[in-house]
Amino acid sequence: MYQVKKVSIAQLKDPLVVRWLYSLSVWPVSPARLASYLTNPNADPGDDVIYVVTQMDECVAFRTIMPDLIRGRNGQIKVAWLSGTWVKPSCRGKKLSLLTLHEVMKDWGGRLMFTNYSPVSENVNLQSHEFDLFLRREGMRFYLRSPLSVKFQCSFYGSKFLLKFADSLVNMLFSIHRTLKSRCNVNHNEMISPMDMGDFVDAASTQFSHAISKRESPHFSWILQHPWIGEGKPELRYPFTWLNMGNCVLMRSVVNSSGIIIAFALVNVKQMMATIPYFWCSIDEAGHQLTQGLVDELTNREVLWLTIFDPSVTRFFIKHRLLKKSVKQNYYISHLMKGLMHDPHWYHPVDGDGDVVFV
């Protein structure tokens, strides 16, 4: 017999509940995500955010969600982003993910959203026949360095050395290719500089008015102060990544001669891969300047690739003639949400919408 145990925001403040969560053989929530849940400005105390399926007091499945505010046709809408589902391997095929999904659907009045960040979760959620594709974005993955030694883990003798040697040759060609083919004309009188958290929050809070998720000063502060993935040695009892060496958040801006910010970006670097949740520029020249600086810095940090879904941002990186491939991002909404949302063309989604800003 399976039981679904729900944990609300208010219950996460109870030490006994937290002790129970971390006494399970598999953790349903990481300490980083727990801290984020407790400080989420969109969450109310009664919001259920963790759904644990137990059998004989053992965790055999769980689902987590993230409360968020969405810009809707008649004002803001409070929704739940489906942001993590796991089932014990020996229990897969028993529809436990659908069991938790139905509970979430009931508790949140059908106001659910998710993306195709995890293809496995995407397939499970779509099996419920409760969702429609809301919009699709055509993005790009730009390769800054050769990923051969990371993507191909061969076991024969000397393979690691050969792949690293091949990476070195390809990286040298990458560097020459960028130097000869870059078509960016940048004004070096404008400086690229690091931003502190306060400056970024102030700058970002006045932009992105047509993004899907409502983001104001408290939301940006929350995102920056409570990331889901940090730097450190991974904890194997949590089935998703939440600690890794080399993770960091970069905030960079272009400032003109008058000291005014004319472009800025927030970059997430995780496991040698990067994303840009937020990017803005007042003029294209500043966007090119910022892009040039980001490409140089990420290359120096030995980041393998950069994934961007926003076409207004990819156009700057295309100018650098980086090797690239097309990638897609799908946004799904529950049937009930269709009548609450603007037309998809009203939105200008950014890569920081929803829960993907944390992953």
Rank of each mutant, 00 (worst) to 15 (best):
N256K: 03
L306D: 07
E297K: 12
Q289A: 09
N300M: 10
S334C: 11
F309Q: 07
K325H: 14
F316S: 04
N300F: 02
F309I: 03
T275F: 01
K325P: 00
K319D: 07
C281H: 13
N330L: 14
V295N: 01
W280S: 04
E285S: 15
I318Q: 11
R321I: 04
I333V: 15
F279I: 05
A286Y: 09
N300V: 04
S257R: 12
S334L: 12
V295Y: 02
V327D: 09
L306R: 06
I262M: 02
T291H: 09
L298G: 04
Q329T: 00
P277V: 07
T291D: 07
A265Y: 07
I262K: 08
F309G: 03
K328M: 14
W280F: 12
V327Y: 08
N268F: 02
S258R: 10
T314I: 12
H288R: 13
L290K: 06
P277L: 05
M272N: 11
T307N: 13
M273D: 03
E297S: 11
T299F: 07
T275E: 03
F279Q: 06
I318L: 11
A286W: 09
N268Q: 13
A265Q: 06
W305C: 15
K270G: 00
Q271I: 04
L304C: 08
L306Q: 06
P277M: 07
S326Q: 13
F264Q: 07
I333Q: 11
R315N: 05
I261F: 05
L290I: 08
F309D: 08
E302Y: 05
A274P: 01
F316I: 07
L336F: 11
Y331P: 02
S312G: 01
L304S: 08
K324V: 07
V255R: 13
S334V: 12
K324D: 01
T307M: 08
F309P: 00
G293M: 09
V303F: 04
M272K: 13
R315M: 12
H288P: 00
Y331S: 03
D310A: 15
N330Q: 12
Y331H: 10
Q289K: 15
M272G: 02
A263R: 05
A286H: 09
V267Y: 01
W305P: 00
R321N: 15
S312E: 14
R315A: 02
N268S: 15
F317Q: 10
Y331N: 04
Q329C: 10
M273Q: 15
F264C: 09
W280Q: 06
F264W: 14
Q292G: 11
D284Q: 11
Y332C: 06
L266R: 08
H320N: 14
N300I: 05
L290G: 05
V255T: 15
